[in-house]
Design a protein around this nucleic acid. Structure first.
Lengths: 95, 95
DNA sequence: TGCGCATATGCGCATATATTTATATATGCA
DNA sequence: TGCATATATAAATATATGCGCATATGCGCA
């Protein structure tokens, strides 16, 4: 629980989760580009998400592809979904 | 959003929220006792919750009574509820 | 084997956050 | 007014977090 909330407490990590949450696979370089984050920064953030159990990674040739962890306990998945939904909601208001 | 997640990122604050989330009013001294927190610590934690918009306070004689903010936007209330539910769930597992 | 791309990590710095101690403020009551 | 209770806050300190830079590692390809 604590690790998950800590992971959710950073906007770059939430943005990465928002991209991954559809279930697709995305490599670190794609996330870097889309979020405008430096390489080391992106890598570290993904490590936090991985260690919180929110995402899984898989090496594919020279890339590492991240994806949502499908085995995340439902009550934790609900937290992530609620946070992403709330953020999406407020973004729409701000725009 | 950021303030709400920061507020949720501390176990003492989550425990206080769990007590307040039923809608009742509770003074700081009660929260101190129930959570085993020192006075200044409890006061600061409640300030974080208040500034995140999660709770409201009201002075009643020499006490300050805190309660859940009923006007919290539903998408944020959903986040809090999901977090408290997840925590409650894991507590049951651990016990 | 050597090179280049993709990713991870150690290190140091700056900033944020939490905690304790001490003190200040507000209220009720004698 | 003076004291007790309840709460807030300031100062000092410890700890955590995020970041960039440099470097290491893994992989494909020539």
């Amino acid at each position: 629980m604590q690790k998950i909330l800590t992971a959710l407490c950073d906007s770059t990590r939430r943005a990465a989760l928002a991209i991954l949450w559809d279930g697709g696979e995305h490599c670190v370089c794609e996330l870097m580009d889309r979020l405008g984050a430096s390489q080391s920064r992106m890598s570290r953030h993904m490590k936090v998400l991985r260690e919180a159990g929110l995402v899984l990674d898989r090496r594919d040739a020279q890339w590492v592809r991240y994806r949502r962890n499908p085995d995340l306990a439902p009550e934790f998945a609900a937290v992530v979904t609620a946070v992403l939904a709330a953020e999406h909601h407020t973004e729409l208001e701000t725009t």
